[in-house]
Design a protein around this nucleic acid. Sequence first.
DNA 1: GCCCCCTTACTGGCCGCTTAGCACAATAAT
DNA 2: ATTATTGTGCTAAGCGGCCAGTAAGGGGGC
Lengths: 216, 216
Amino acid sequence: MAFESLAAPTRRGLRTTRRIVDAAARLFGAEGFQGASMDAVARAAGVSKGLLHYHFRSKEQLLIEAQRDTFRKIHERFEERFERGDRGLATALEGIDALWEAILDMRAWAPFLMQTLSLAAQDRPVRLHVDEFYRESTVLLERGVRNVFSEEVSQLALPPERLAMIIRTALHGLVVELSYARTALELSRVEQAYRDLRAFFERAVLVSNSPQTESL
Amino acid sequence: MAFESLAAPTRRGLRTTRRIVDAAARLFGAEGFQGASMDAVARAAGVSKGLLHYHFRSKEQLLIEAQRDTFRKIHERFEERFERGDRGLATALEGIDALWEAILDMRAWAPFLMQTLSLAAQDRPVRLHVDEFYRESTVLLERGVRNVFSEEVSQLALPPERLAMIIRTALHGLVVELSYARTALELSRVEQAYRDLRAFFERAVLVSNSPQTESL
DNA sequence: GCCCCCTTACTGGCCGCTTAGCACAATAAT
DNA sequence: ATTATTGTGCTAAGCGGCCAGTAAGGGGGC
């Protein structure tokens, strides 16, 4: 992480770097990228501002590291559930449930994800980095779908890549709702929306008799 | 708009105010709220920076006016289509299509909507204003659902308010994808995702035999 | 004792907002 | 009809504060 030195970072350096990245993700999410000052991030991490620039070349670099970190966390939970050998609709639903649980667990990061997506539409380097993540996760999701439905692929209402896309879209929508929800009531409405979307998915994803639906 | 005077604004003042608000929505969407300076907005609107503060008490007030304007535009298209007297699933799908078309037409505003949602999670006054819009539009959407399905309400897979919620969620997801899509290919994928979600909706929204599904 | 980690102090620049004042239109006074 | 009066729309310039980034030096683990 210490970009200037070629020496391996020490344990201590790694720990503080981690603290800084966590604080950055939290604050960027809570107050926005431009809204959260380096000084505020430093205070939240319990270090001095100078140290941030010692570890990270710039504020933008800190943002990208924080994103990488967040994405990595999601990916881990992602993979550990979707890469099993099980098959069939029930397994697919379990996998999606696991994804949703991961998102729920990380709902403190939801505003940060929103910020990230919003920034990616503006800022070139951020965009490139987010693209990379989406390529990875889309591939992962598609492979998951193909694995899970391997024997029923011909019965799928949609080809796997389009299925992966609408799952991603629906999850984006849920993340928006999550990042917006404040009260327990609002949160429970979002959870209900997840269950309802899931039920629609369950009811419509397999077509028993006909081949795939019309394209375009 | 000129908040200090109690007099009605003249035609000229109104026209420039409109130009400023348009420029603000565009720039806030493109560069973010904190990212777009008042000076930049002024330049984009072809006026001086001071004029912005003449018409709007603060930068935040300008944001809120820009939001009100955007929301109003959406609402107009919203209502003109959903308030007809027609009934049935086909009408519902038409209504949703109209909504989607409206969103597509305004896809230049998608980044701005993202910014708005992201900011609403941070900023109290912005939040209150966005809440107000959501109350309105949710009521509108629910009423639309009730109207359209009035004779088949017992056959709905979900009660109207939950149906409205998942429509909103899915649209949020699509707006995220839209605000992110740059190339024509990406755009066409988003449009495909809409059609696929719509097909799922069509296939699952009515349950022919049983009453409403399990709640919670 | 060396080097990495970290702090304090500082700088240059940008940005929101204010202020002072000009241009022009509408109404009132002469 | 010309001249005051008033008020709105708008500009230019500057102030004050905040913030990303830097520089220089102190201390603590290997």
